[in-house]
Amino acid sequence: MEYFVQQLINGLTLGSIYGLIAIGYTMVYGIIGMINFAHGDIYMIGAFVGIIGFIVMAILGITWIPLALLLVLVMAIVFTSVYGWTVERIAYRPLRGSQRLAPLISALGMSIFLQNYVQLLQGARVKPMQPMISGGLQLMDGGVGGFTVGMSYMQIIIILLTVVLMAAFTLLITKTALGRMQRACEQDKLMAALVGVNVDRTISLAFVMGAALAAVAGVMVTLYYGVIDFYIGFLAGLKAFTAAVLGGIGSIAGAMLGGLAIGLIEALWSAYFSVEYKDVAAFSILILVLIFRPSGFLGKPEIEKV
């Protein structure tokens, strides 16, 4: 039981990170109907900006952790967003309205480019980071010889931050003019343009917001695992996309839910079956869900239009 609860906590933490990345996929997919294959690499860039940011904080002598964390988050969000914007502007906008595979290939190209760009600039070696936030709470004491359930402060921060960001983001999409524009463009870009929505800017913003959330996820991962390299974007991106599909692509709550589901599946599978095959489990479940409920958890079922 205690072991199970512990895995649940680990799974939730992991799932929060996937969920944050998944929102970027789901927003872009909702608005322009394409898989942004470079999104995983945007997340990787977020992690790199984050790790550099922490060193900068140390150099500047900002040692109070909450302030340092906040500054690094802001820094990661700002610089990563520029990448999100640029990727859209260079690789996707000119291809809007051409055949469906063209933006996909240019996204793949962009992904390969970004990986090698970071590798070239920052080196191919794994970047380690000293743990900054240690310690945690003991939730359940298993007694002598029993299993103690713990939740590290890092896990608490990740889950809390995700909840706060999700709430803020949901408000942004449902309550503000900006969110209305996003939803209008999702429904019908031409009509939105006719009633005065700046479609180009709205799409750019979707990329920027997705990149910002991915940057947060990147910083969190840096802190949580303590190592990053230029290749982390691929698998994380793949799983986050899986999460977005699982939750019902186009639905923001679905992305979060899908992220949590993938995180939990991965943690529980690793705990009870085998760590090696945790990714196989995630993908197999994706395949099963798509076959039996292709619209995911929260997506609208699609009727074949004749």
Binding site: I55, V56, F79, V82, L121, K127
Partner: peptide, 24 residues
């Protein structure tokens, strides 16, 4: 401005591993 955003961190500050600790 965009060029600055793209290059300032990733180009301007190279991380290097010095005895298990990262320096810039």
């Amino acid at each position: 401005l965009v060029a600055f955003g793209l290059t300032f961190v990733l180009v301007g500050m190279q991380t290097a591993d010095r005895g298990g600790e990262l320096i810039i």
